[in-house]
Design a protein around this nucleic acid. Structure first.
Lengths: 176, 176
DNA sequence: TATTGTTATACTCTATAACTATA
DNA sequence: TATAGTTATAGAGTATAACAATA
């Protein structure tokens, strides 16, 4: 038997002991079901990922009537704030690769939320603009985010903590 | 021309004006290059996602010598803390679906970091244990995380803020 | 009949190379 | 030659159905 296999057998014995104790429910401080997270609950990456999934899930739920994903909402917000920019500029600002931005825009354009316009300065570029409908939908989206999504967060953390959280996350996103 | 198309033309005129002004670089308060994030920088989901990507990127960099992803690290931590649990229990605790957990375990087991052991209580179950090598690698991984990954975060935010951040993210992950 | 681990499969995200039309 | 938009494609991550072994 190899050293590694011997260690595995030893671990196996320990594991089976724990399993048997749990089966007999004779471990006093063992709830009997849930696993202990241990150091995992202090790992930034772990809680960050779990929190992000929850926030996106809630966002999608709040936006169900408008059928907007977080990524689509971010595109509409950025195009509204920066009229006259091309696909490369908008995509790179959002961390989206240009090839992957094509299908996203196809979707938004097919729903008449935004439009590509060939630039007269540089005929290679497509300038992005919100349509009338795009502006209206974005306006409704902002209201839904404020009254449902952000309101829920304020309720959970309080306004001051919410601002501190955003500030720390921004710092990590920009400087880590 | 439809109403929507007329609105688009109007938006187009505005966009082209902004584009032309930028081309002439005659907009006083326009840096000339970077887009303005506007409300995006206050959107929780946006900063959360960007921060998560940065943290995972840094984690992978710190762990390059051990070739451990955040997900693999979380599995090793959880198995060490909870010996004698089966695949379903470990996977569901981490939010991993059982079918997707199979390939992950195949990888860890092929590297001799953990082992599946058929339970004697219930021969359907595979009990998970860390091998000797798995315990050693996890120990080194924890040191790398503490001295490189977490140290960087403390440097950026300070210890008190770091704890407050983790607490808020945990609250969101558990209660949002 | 129900559950564990597994396979197969599909859908989304993300990433890279290469094409076209313009510059 | 270099750049903008695009296509094709490949790889992760994630989701569901169904099967064999076992309870």
């Amino acid at each position: 038997m190899t050293v590694s296999k011997a260690a595995e057998k030893s671990a196996e014995a320990t594991a089976k002991g724990a399993e048997a104790a749990r089966a007999r429910k004779d471990a006093p401080d063992d709830a009997g079901e849930a696993l202990q997270l241990g150091e995992l609950s202090e790992q930034l990456g772990y809680v960050l990922k779990r929190a992000q999934l929850k926030v996106f899930e809630n966002f999608l739920h709040c936006m169900a009537s408008l059928q907007l994903t977080p990524a689509q909402f971010s595109v509409l917000l950025l195009v509204e704030k920066n009229p006259g920019r091309n696909q490369t500029e908008v995509a790179s600002t959002l961390g989206i690769l240009r090839p992957n931005f094509v299908a996203m825009l196809d979707n938004l354009e097919s729903r008449d939320l935004c439009a590509r316009i060939r630039s007269t300065n540089d005929r290679r570029s497509h300038i992005l603009v919100l349509t009338d409908k795009g502006k209206a939908v974005l306006s409704r989206a902002k209201k839904l985010v404020a009254t449902k999504h952000e309101a829920r967060l304020n309720e959970l953390l309080g306004g001051a903590n919410r601002e501190a959280l955003i500030a720390m996350l921004s710092k990590i996103a920009n400087e880590f």
